[in-house]
Design a protein around this nucleic acid. Structure first.
Lengths: 244, 244
DNA sequence: CCATGCTACATTGCATACATCTACAATGGC
DNA sequence: GCCATTGTAGATGTATGCAATGTAGCATGG
C-alpha cells in the first residue's frame, strides 16, 4: 500500500495529486476543449502554473485518468506534451513528475527572456500602428485598474504577448510564451505586484518609439526580478522546504 | 548511404510514406532505443530531417505502425513529440502531416539563430578552456578532412553544439538545436558545402577570443544562407513543384 | 449543368486488456 | 549483523477493439 493520504497531506515533495481543486479546473476548461487530451493538457498546465500541483509531485497516469474520468491514453499524451513545454519531466518506466526550478534555471530563463523579448521589441516597434497602440492601451488600463493579483498577472501576459505578436513571428512569440509560462509558477510565490511602475515606464518608451530605452528598462527589470527569485529560493532551500 | 532516388517514387505532395528506405533506418536506430516510441521518434525524426519523408506527406498512424511492426499507440506519441519539435503538424481528427518551410519561416528561423547563437558565443567564450579548444579543434579537423557531405554536416552540428554546450545552459542549447534541426532539411536541397571558408574564419575568431568578430561572421554567414534558401524556394515555387 | 444533401468509408480518438519493467522488501548466505 | 538475491506488487508500455468524427462519392433537385 502506498496510499499516502490521511493526515499528512501537506504539500510534500513526492505527494500524489489530490482531485480537490483540480475538479473545479476541469469543469472550467471543459467547454473550451475539442478532445479529451486537450482538456487534460489545458487543465494540468493551468494547475501546474497556478501552483495547484506543487513541483516534485508524481503524476501517476491512473490517478489522473480517474480524476478526469477517462483512460490513461489521453493522459499519457497530455503529459508528453507538458514534458515538451518543460513543466514536467519523465524517465522511461518511471513516470512523470512536475519539474522544479532552481536558481540556475531562473538565471537561464530570465537571461533568455531578456534576449528574446528585447529582440521582439526591436522588431515590433517599427511595425506598430495606431490601432495596435490603442489596443495595448486598453489592456494596460484594464490591468492597472484590476485589483485581483491573478487577473492582473493574466492581463500582463496578454499585454506583452500582444505586443510581441505584432512581429508576426510565431516561433519567437512561442518561445517567449514558453519561458514566461515556466517562471509564472515562481512569480506567484510572492511579489506578484513587485513593481507596477516598471510596466508604465516600459510602455512609455514603447509609445515614444524608443527601442533602446524600452529594452534597457526591460533588461534591468528582469535582472531585478531574477535576483529576487534567486534570493527567495536560497531562503527556502535553507529552511529545507525546498520550494519549486 | 543516403540513397535518395528510386525512379518511381516521385516525391509528391500528399503522398503516403513508403517503407522502402525507412526500413533501413529502423534497424539502424533500434539498438539505441529503450522503448518502442523512442525508436519511432528517432527514426521519423531522422527520416524527416534527411528528406526521406518529404514535406506535405500525410503520416497515417496505421501505416507507420505497420512499418515499425507495432501498434498505433507508440506511433501517436512519437508524432505528438515531433509536433512539438516543429517537424510535423496536426489537427484533431485529421491526422499528422510533415510541415513545410516557406520563405517567411526561413527568415524567422535564421533570424532567431543569429540572436540565440550569438548570445551563446558571447557566453561561451570566457568559459573556454584549453581542453575545450582542443576538442573543438579535433572535431573541426575531422570535419574538414571528411569528404561525404552528410558526414560533414553531422560533424558541423557536433562542432557548434559542442561549443554552445560550454555555456552550461540546457534551454539555450536546446532551442538552438531545434532551430538548426528545422532548417537541416532545407540545407540538404543543395549548397551542402556552401562556404567552408566561413567556419574556418569563425573558429579563428573563437580561438582569438574575439566575440565581436565571431558573432559578426556568424550573422553575415547566416544572412547569406537564408537569402540563398529564400531564392531557391522562390524558384521552386514558380516551377509549381513547391518544395519544402 | 451545378449546387446540395445523404450515404458509405476511411481515419483518428478513446477504452479495455495484456506484457514488461522498476522498486521494495523479505529471505537466505556469508 | 550485513549484503546479495529473488519474489512480489505497483506502475508504466503496448496491443487490440470500439466509438466518434471527418471526407469522398453519388444521387437528387434546382
Amino acid at each position: 500500500m502506498r496510499t499516502t493520504e490521511r493526515g499528512t497531506t501537506g504539500p510534500e515533495r513526492g505527494q500524489r495529486v489530490g482531485g480537490a481543486q483540480l475538479a473545479e479546473l476541469v469543469e472550467e476548461m471543459r467547454p473550451r476543449s475539442a478532445t479529451v487530451q486537450d482538456l487534460v493538457l489545458a487543465t494540468l498546465r493551468e494547475a501546474i502554473v497556478h501552483g495547484v500541483i506543487v513541483p516534485g509531485s508524481r503524476l501517476r497516469q491512473e490517478d489522473l485518468a480517474a480524476i478526469f474520468n477517462t483512460s490513461r491514453i489521453p493522459v499519457r499524451e497530455a503529459l508528453r506534451a507538458l514534458e515538451y513545454e518543460g513543466l514536467v519531466e519523465s524517465e522511461p518506466h518511471r513516470g512523470f513528475t512536475v519539474t522544479s526550478l532552481d536558481a540556475d534555471q531562473i538565471e537561464e530563463i530570465y537571461d533568455l527572456r531578456i534576449v528574446l523579448e528585447s529582440h521582439a521589441v526591436r522588431l515590433a516597434l517599427p511595425l506598430l500602428t495606431d490601432v495596435d497602440l490603442q489596443e495595448l492601451q486598453d489592456i494596460y488600463d484594464t490591468m492597472t485598474a484590476e485589483t485581483d493579483a491573478d487577473q492582473q498577472l493574466a492581463l500582463r501576459e496578454r499585454f506583452y504577448l500582444r505586443l510581441y505578436s505584432i512581429t508576426a513571428r510565431p516561433r519567437l512569440v512561442g518561445l517567449i510564451a514558453r519561458m514566461r509560462q515556466e517562471v509564472a509558477r515562481a512569480l506567484r510565490w510572492q511579489l506578484v505586484q513587485h513593481s507596477p511602475a516598471h510596466h508604465g515606464d516600459f510602455f512609455e518608451a514603447i509609445k515614444a518609439g524608443d527601442a533602446d530605452r524600452a529594452t534597457a528598462e526591460l533588461a534591468s527589470h528582469y535582472r531585478k526580478v531574477a535576483a529576487l527569485l534567486r534570493r527567495y529560493l536560497r531562503e527556502m532551500k535553507q529552511r529545507g522546504s525546498d520550494g519549486t
